[in-house]
Simulated scan of single mutants.
Amino acid sequence: MEEQVGRLLDDLDFPALYRGYTWRDDTWERGFLEILDLEREVTAAARSLALGLDHVQKIARRDDLLAPARIAVTLYIGSAPAYWLMLEPEETIQTVERQIRGLGPVCASKLLRFAVPQVFGTLDARLIRVFGRGDSGSQRYPLLDLAVEPSGDRWAIPAGQPGWPGEYGAWAGALQAVAGGLNRDEVSCPHPAGFAAAGLRSEGIWAAADVEMALSCYAAGVLRGEERKDSVTGAV
């Protein structure tokens, strides 16, 4: 893991990748306004122990999920992320998954990403193709012992893998390690101004979710066959 994190820090232009990230119709040029609104709402709910089905449905854009009105999970102590999240992230995602019927690992990771962006990031099939196993033509950095497989015209994460949920903990650790390296090297994260104004980020400081956004942009480029020099500073 340490070797791959070092390669990522050496190879990739994280600020450029962060600026190139898109989610639905949200872009850096537009201020990541949809992400900002969801983070503001979901982190506030998580801090007040009010995280519930309505937040899951907004993130997943699905209305077929069954869950309690309030999800029993403690993610914050006061205004700070609970200390145990970094120690045992796999326990946290299991707690969430057990309470939401029909929620797979991708949606569970999205919920945690919006609830505690300092600690968590999304993990989806696109990221596993590039940073895990199952798509040898796309793998670039073997960070994860999780696999994907073709499913029709898409890629899926097979259920029941021995690496789940432990490898979610590895993913969270990798995101935090990259964020720590960027912050130590004083590589500023180009957050839109609204994130610092809302108290969701410290200006220029990378959080785990910011790193995941950059890596998602990189993975999307790999899968499109567009590993351009403006987003990669070293050989891949």
Rank of each mutant, 00 (worst) to 15 (best):
P105L: 14
S138C: 13
V130Q: 00
A115S: 15
V119Q: 02
G134N: 04
L85R: 02
I128L: 15
I100Q: 03
E91W: 08
Y83T: 09
V130A: 00
L85A: 12
L87Q: 15
R140P: 01
R98V: 02
E97V: 15
R154P: 01
T92N: 10
F114T: 09
Y141L: 12
F131Q: 08
A108G: 12
E88Q: 11
G102I: 07
E97N: 04
R98A: 11
V106I: 08
L87P: 02
A80R: 13
E90P: 00
Q118A: 12
A80F: 06
S151P: 00
R154H: 14
E88S: 14
L87T: 12
I100R: 00
L111W: 11
P150V: 10
V96W: 07
C107M: 09
Y83W: 10
L127W: 07
Y83F: 05
I128Y: 01
V106S: 15
G132A: 13
P150R: 14
P150F: 11
E90W: 15
F131I: 04
L103C: 08
I128C: 02
R98S: 11
A80M: 13
G152P: 07
P150I: 08
D135A: 15
V106P: 02
R126D: 13
L103W: 01
L112Y: 08
Q139A: 05
A147W: 10
V130I: 04
P117R: 11
L111F: 14
E97H: 09
G132H: 04
I100S: 00
R113S: 15
R154C: 07
R129F: 08
A82H: 13
F131T: 07
Q139D: 01
